[in-house]
């Protein structure tokens, strides 16, 4: 398999499994590092089949969103599928860990779970004096957006 296409597929797969957009994932700056992490820690055969099968599923014109979700759930998410690659990949993006190991300072700091809960990794990306006393900025701004009184 071409390295470039694996990398593209890795981004695609990451977006599907994490629920974050490709741009959001790129914005973490972790794409390359995580791609290397899975290549290093997962059986090659599992990786190859994972991406081949996933690519086939996502490019199959007969599938719709519902059927894709079903197949992902039953064929990709189980711990027995592709050496648990889907589960490990999600945990990697959300926590910055592979198993119990922290990949790097950056992976800890870029864990998606912190954004998800409108917080920040403890000890990094601090939000400034008194910020904790209000709603998180990300919550406030989404309220502004949806509020009919907002400009």
């Amino acid at each position: 398999m071409e390295p470039i296409s694996t990398s593209k597929l890795f981004l695609e797969a990451s977006a599907v499994f994490t629920g974050f957009s490709k741009t959001e994932l790129k914005a973490t700056g972790m794409l390359q590092s995580y791609h290397n992490t899975i290549l290093k820690n997962t059986n090659k055969e599992d990786i190859d089949y994972f991406f081949i099968d996933l690519n086939q599923l996502l490019t199959d014109p007969k599938q719709d969103a519902k059927s894709i979700k079903h197949i992902l759930t039953t064929q990709f998410m189980p711990i027995s599928a592709y050496g648990s690659l889907a589960q490990n990949m999600i945990i990697l993006w959300y926590t910055g860990n592979w198993g119990n190991d922290v990949i790097s300072s950056a992976s800890y700091i870029q864990g998606l779970m912190w954004d998800t809960i409108h917080a920040h990794p403890p000890g990094a990306k601090q939000p400034g004096y008194g910020s904790w006393s209000d709603l998180p900025l990300s919550v406030k701004q989404s309220t502004v957006k949806s509020s009919p009184n907002g400009k």
Partner: peptide, 20 residues
Amino acid sequence: PGSDVTTAVSEGIFGKELRD
């Protein structure tokens, strides 16, 4: 929140549903 992620993932939850 790390344990919440691993628990949800082990239940097979992923994507937008996981995030929510």
